[in-house]
C-alpha cells in the first residue's frame, strides 16, 4: 500500500468482554471512499472511533502517513474531521456562532462571509440567527456538515451521515462527498442507506465477528 495515507494494521477491537473484530488490515489513499458495513452492534462505530483516535485498539495500530496516530496525534487531528452520531452543535448558539467556535477550535481566524456562504449553500439561509435549539434534527445535521466543509480536512470520518436528512439533503451529501473525493480527499463512512456514488473509487468493508481478509 504505497500511497495509502490512512492504514490499519492487525487491528483488534473489544467492547467490554466481547471481541468485535481482530486482524483487520486495510489502507486508504487519496480520492478513495471506504464504506463500512455491517449489522447493528457489529462494531462499525467502534471502528470509526478507533480511526479517529478517540478509542484505543485492543491490538494493532492505525497509521496516518505511515506513523502511528498515537504518536502524531495532533498533526493527524489537523487533517481529520469526525462527524459522529451526535452533531456537536451547541443548542444555545446560532449556526454562525457554532461555526465560529469550530474555526477557533482549529486555531483559525473566523471568516464570516465564507461561513455564511457555506450555510447558505447547505440551505440554511433562513436560520442564520436562530439558536440551533429551534432547528430540526436535519437542519442541525446540516450545520454540522457546514463545519465539516469549513474544516478543510483531508480525511472525513462520517458515522451515519445520512440519518435524519431528507431526499434533497441526501443528494447534496452525495455531491459533497464526490467533490471531496475528486479534490483528493478521503472519506470513511458508515451507512445503512444506499449512496449514489458513480465514478468514485469505493472500498467496502464488512465489519463483524469474523476475521476480515486484507482488502487491498
Amino acid at each position: 500500500m504505497p500511497d495509502a495515507l490512512l492504514s490499519v494494521h492487525d487491528l483488534a477491537c473489544a467492547r467490554g468482554e466481547r471481541l468485535l473484530f481482530k486482524g483487520m488490515n486495510f489502507g486508504l489513499g487519496k480520492g478513495e471512499l471506504l464504506l463500512v458495513q455491517g449489522g447493528n452492534g457489529q462494531g462499525k462505530t467502534s471502528l470509526l472511533r478507533l480511526l479517529t483516535g478517540l478509542a484505543r485498539p485492543e491490538e494493532g495500530e492505525v497509521r496516518w502517513r505511515g506513523e502511528s496516530i498515537r504518536r502524531v496525534g495532533e498533526a493527524y487531528h489537523g487533517e481529520m474531521c469526525y462527524l459522529g452520531h451526535a452533531n456537536g452543535v451547541k443548542d444555545d448558539l446560532n449556526p454562525v456562532e457554532n461555526l465560529r467556535f469550530a474555526d477557533g477550535m482549529h486555531g483559525r481566524a473566523f471568516d464570516q462571509t465564507r461561513a455564511v456562504a457555506t450555510l447558505e449553500r447547505l440551505g440554511l439561509s433562513r436560520c442564520l440567527d436562530l439558536p440551533c435549539r429551534v432547528l430540526s434534527f436535519g437542519q442541525r445535521r446540516r450545520v454540522a456538515l457546514a463545519a465539516l466543509l469549513l474544516a478543510g480536512a483531508t480525511l472525513w470520518i462520517l458515522d451515519e451521515p445520512l440519518t435524519g436528512l431528507d431526499v434533497h439533503a441526501v443528494v447534496l451529501m452525495e455531491g459533497l462527498i464526490r467533490n471531496h473525493l475528486t479534490a483528493g480527499g478521503m472519506v470513511v463512512a458508515t451507512t445503512h442507506q444506499a449512496l449514489n456514488l458513480d465514478g468514485v473509487a469505493v472500498q467496502r468493508l464488512l465489519v463483524g465477528n469474523v476475521a476480515i481478509p486484507a482488502l487491498m
Binding site: T52, G53, Y82, A102, M105
Partner: peptide
C-alpha cells in the same frame, strides 16, 4: 468529542 479531536 470534536474538541478533543481538534488539532490542539
Amino acid at each position: 468529542e470534536h474538541m478533543v479531536l481538534s488539532p490542539e
